[in-house]
Amino acid sequence: ADGGAADALALDVADRSAVVEAIDAVAERLGRIDAVVNNAMWIRYGALEEMDEATVDRMLAVGLKAVVWMAQASLPHLRRTSGCIVNVSSPAAVRATAGAAIYSAVKGAVSSLTWQMSNELGAQGVRVNAVVPGAVPTEGARALVDDAGYELRRAHTPLGRLGTPEDLAGAVSFLVSEDAAFVNGHLLAVDGGLLVS
C-alpha cells in the first residue's frame, strides 16, 4: 500500500552454503542489505527422553546454527550500511514449558548468542537485538498448539489476549529503525506481560 515490494526466496536456512548464496544474491540484486531478521524455527514438542537424534539435530540446525550462518553471510553487507540483526527468542528460554526442553534450550542459546553478537558486532557498527514473542497463533503455530493450548496461554498473559503478527512486526520495525540507533544487545519482550506474570 505504501509502494513497497516484497520477494519470497525459498531456502533451507540450516544449509550454510545456501544461506551464503542467497544473501549474496539478494545484496547483488538490491545493492545493499540493511537488516536481517532470524525468524526460522523447526519445532517438535515431546518428553526429553523421547527426543531422537534427528529431531534434536534439526531443531538445533534451523533454530540456532542458521542464526550463525545468516550472521556470517550478511556481515560483509551489514558493515557497509551500519545495518542490524534481529533474532527471535522465546519466553521458553527462561520459563519451563511442558514438552519443550529442546526448544527452550535452542531459544536460550539464541538469547545468549544475541548478547554475544551485540558485543562482538557492535564494535563493527552492526547492532544486534532480539524480540521475545508471546503466544501468536499463526498458521504454522496452530499446527502444533490446539485451541485449548492457546486458551491456556491467553489466560497466563496479563493483557488478556494473544499476540498478532502485527504486534511482532511493529517491534521488529522499531528495532531496525533509526529510532533504535542506540539500542544494542536488548531482548524486547512482545508478550503481553507473560514474562512478568
Rank of each mutant, 00 (worst) to 15 (best):
G3E: 10
Q124R: 13
V68P: 00
L144G: 05
V13L: 09
A180Q: 01
A40S: 08
I23T: 13
L188D: 00
N39W: 05
K65S: 12
R161P: 03
E49D: 14
A18S: 14
A73T: 01
G63S: 14
V19A: 06
A123K: 08
V62P: 01
L152H: 13
M117K: 09
E120L: 04
A101M: 11
V67H: 02
L11K: 06
Y103F: 07
K107F: 00
V37S: 12
R58C: 00
V68Q: 11
G149V: 02
L144V: 06
D179I: 06
G185V: 07
W69F: 14
A5E: 13
L188H: 05
R95G: 01
L121P: 15
V20Q: 13
D12P: 10
Y150W: 08
A14M: 10
A18T: 10
A101R: 07
A1E: 15
S111P: 00
A73P: 00
M41C: 06
G46D: 03
Q116W: 09
R29L: 05
M41V: 14
W69R: 12
A148K: 05
L60A: 13
S197N: 12
A14C: 04
A14S: 15
L75R: 14
H77W: 03
A141H: 04
V37N: 11
I33W: 10
R127I: 04
A66D: 02
I23Y: 08
A93H: 07
G108A: 15
